[in-house]
Nucleic acid binder design. Structure first.
Lengths: 151, 151
DNA sequence: GACCTAATCTGCAAATCATGCGAATAAGCA
DNA sequence: TGCTTATTCGCATGATTTGCAGATTAGGTC
């Protein structure tokens, strides 16, 4: 998604108001690569702005999604996660710690549906499951993140 | 998953009981390519066995999943769907009617994560979004299935 | 700076999906 | 037939998300 400043511009130009709640969420989301859930953002936001409502977090996330500034992703049936990365990309989910990383893929255009089933794909999404660099390195177990996996 | 007969064998050999509820669900799931939700199976099962409990449907689906006879898939944050297809395959989701088709993929081994991020993938899943053959054919609109999309 | 109005925020109720638990029931065996 | 234990069932509960209505506030106007 765009920078907080640009989002302020966009909201203003669309007649939407700039509230402290929105500004906080803009900054929490900007360049956030953690794919947070609404709940997680609410927790972080509450630390900086006690009293902010979970409802407002959901509302703002929905608004940004409808504006195309965020995308929603879910893995394995857990809670919806929000992704401010608008570039064409895919995801790698660590089975150990649940971390989700954005990845770019080479040769995706090579894959094709093998059966003659006449399905016309407009988009393709790829999810890798495996072990992230951090969890694969025994020596760094000390500062390994806790398991954030949902379900 | 295996045939109902084979599942009966397996359950018996593991000391599990063969109940009418289980047998019904075995047959409803066998070679079922619709990726039904627990709710959908419950509706179908109820027609043939009034009084069956939704709880039992969930329980049996969970059991079969733990035995490796079913896999669970979710798309776009909807309810969990159950897939009796144990072969290596991927999915194509129709944006129009919500239908989910199993697809085989060629050249999947060609795709690779482009960044040097040291993620070690153990499995890769691909989901195509697009238009299914049925929805792409205007002449067959009359018998087009209704939109089953969850969310 | 005061005022106005619509947008926004908040808290709570409610919908959806899924699981835990205890009592009632029934499968499988002696 | 009777026993043992797995299973079923129904309800309560939990997790996530949305709807609603009243209170609040941003942002423009005078």
């Amino acid at each position: 998604m765009r920078s907080p400043e640009q989002l302020v511009e966009r909201f203003r130009s669309e007649g939407l108001k700039i509230t402290p709640q929105r500004q906080l969420l803009f900054s929490l989301l900007h360049e956030n690569a953690e794919h947070p859930t609404a709940e997680a953002l609410y927790t972080t936001a509450s630390a900086q702005m006690p009293g902010i409502s979970l409802r407002t977090v959901y509302q703002t996330l929905t608004d940004l999604t409808e504006m195309g500034e965020l995308s929603q992703v879910t893995f394995d049936g857990g809670a919806v996660r929000f992704d401010p990365n608008l570039a064409d990309h895919h995801h790698a989910v660590c089975n150990e710690c649940g971390a989700i990383a954005d990845v770019s893929i080479d040769h995706l255009d090579a894959v094709s549906i093998s059966e003659p089933n006449h399905f016309s794909p407009s988009s393709t999404s790829v999810v890798f499951h495996g072990t992230c660099a951090r969890c694969a390195t025994p020596t760094s177990n000390l500062d390994k993140p806790t398991n954030n996996q949902t379900k």
